[in-house]
Design a protein around this nucleic acid. Sequence first.
DNA 1: CGACTCTTTGATAACCCTCAATCTGTGTGG
DNA 2: CCACACAGATTGAGGGTTATCAAAGAGTCG
Lengths: 252, 252
Amino acid sequence: MTSKPNVRQPSHVACRDCSLSSLCLPLALSLQDIDQLDRIIKRGRPLKKGEHLFLEGDPFTSVFAVRSGAIKTYTATNEGEEQITSFYLPSEILGLSGMDTDVYPVSAQAMETTMICEIPFDQLETLSDHFPELRRHMMRLMSKKIREDQQMMMLLSKKNADERIATFLINLASRFRRRGFSSQSFRLSMSRNEMGNYLGLAVETVSRVFTRFQKNGLIYAVGKEIEIRDPVQLCSLAGGKAVDIEQIISSV
Amino acid sequence: MTSKPNVRQPSHVACRDCSLSSLCLPLALSLQDIDQLDRIIKRGRPLKKGEHLFLEGDPFTSVFAVRSGAIKTYTATNEGEEQITSFYLPSEILGLSGMDTDVYPVSAQAMETTMICEIPFDQLETLSDHFPELRRHMMRLMSKKIREDQQMMMLLSKKNADERIATFLINLASRFRRRGFSSQSFRLSMSRNEMGNYLGLAVETVSRVFTRFQKNGLIYAVGKEIEIRDPVQLCSLAGGKAVDIEQIISSV
DNA sequence: CGACTCTTTGATAACCCTCAATCTGTGTGG
DNA sequence: CCACACAGATTGAGGGTTATCAAAGAGTCG
């Protein structure tokens, strides 16, 4: 299988051997096509916690896939504070929103030690000229991102603190599950502060809600480790569409 | 120019003769290519106020361009209320967020009498197989939408009522200007209720802010007609990035 | 002109933010 | 190895912004 001898680090696993390939870009490609994608992907050294993948305003050159760890993207408010716009977990793709501006509209920073696959965009475009499926997959990714952002807008404009945090936890749980990890208990890669920033809440509010959820037996949390104790009620609080809830409850 | 004799209604203007073509999909196409796009576009009868273009859950078949009038998209919250996700003005494209689900994730409704160009998606995909520029244009559209949604998330999570409404008005003004209309005075196609729904505010708050803005000489508003009296201060309230503000102030 | 919706205005209260203090955990240097 | 410094997390008190409730005014359409 791995004819190339350069498997010096786990970061050099080929796409076809990557456990995340079924979730990531190669999804739509045949084995042979994957090798072509594989050739254009750059796998850099791991990013340490706090290191930046790119900065707001940097020239847009690549999209990125998270292999392990976690990335946050953020932009600066006019008062100079940071506003977190997304968290990215393994197999998730970031950088697509820079496409129409030639610069990244957000900064991307590692929240823990993180391995990244970098996909130079001009080469990805060239490649996608020949693989309509790859093209459609990228369009679908962007379309999905738009829908997710709209869910987020709904959260921010209609939900109270309890509902926001319940939604956030359920969302994380289902993303962990999709990657094959436990969705009942997992480790939050972000601080309470980052969570509040993302959810439009003060740190203190996040903390209070966590405490209350724990008192009521919805979750059990020590530090960043979290266990979902009552997925049904948590989903009910999150208040997604019924159809989504079914899926998530069965997954937690 | 117009060799086809079927110009029975304004809605049957060909893309190459459409005053919005420089803003809409044909942007990236040569005159000859535009004609090919033109052939696949369906131009239905005008939608009357309140009529739906599509409903949440309808099978995804087409993307749409607004020719005149205005469209809102909304989704139902779990309590059954509507949550408006976007307003679309002439030359703007809607429906792209349905691409990865095969159904529209939102409903689209005319806020006034509205003319629409419908672009069947399968044909658009076929066409874009041959025109890389069309493809890139669509990707850019989606990328732009993602950035706009993220601006909206920032508005919802960090801005107070005054700032939200200032931002909304400045945004509308710049969109009107882009279409060649006055950005100093224009007509709101949405009700106070719809505006509040979109901005995450109660109707009463919207009304109060309008009254206060008027008292302070920022705007002059009677009903849906609105005039921007102090664009500098309004922009300052909106608090966008400095570079954007410059552009907008000069435009109002 | 009457029924309707939309808008405005006022009073009240809920929710969450801010400020402040304490507590916990983590890493660093003596 | 411990003590200390520091950042993050928790808890409490108080106040501000905006939602909610209620009612009246303005505009619209049959």
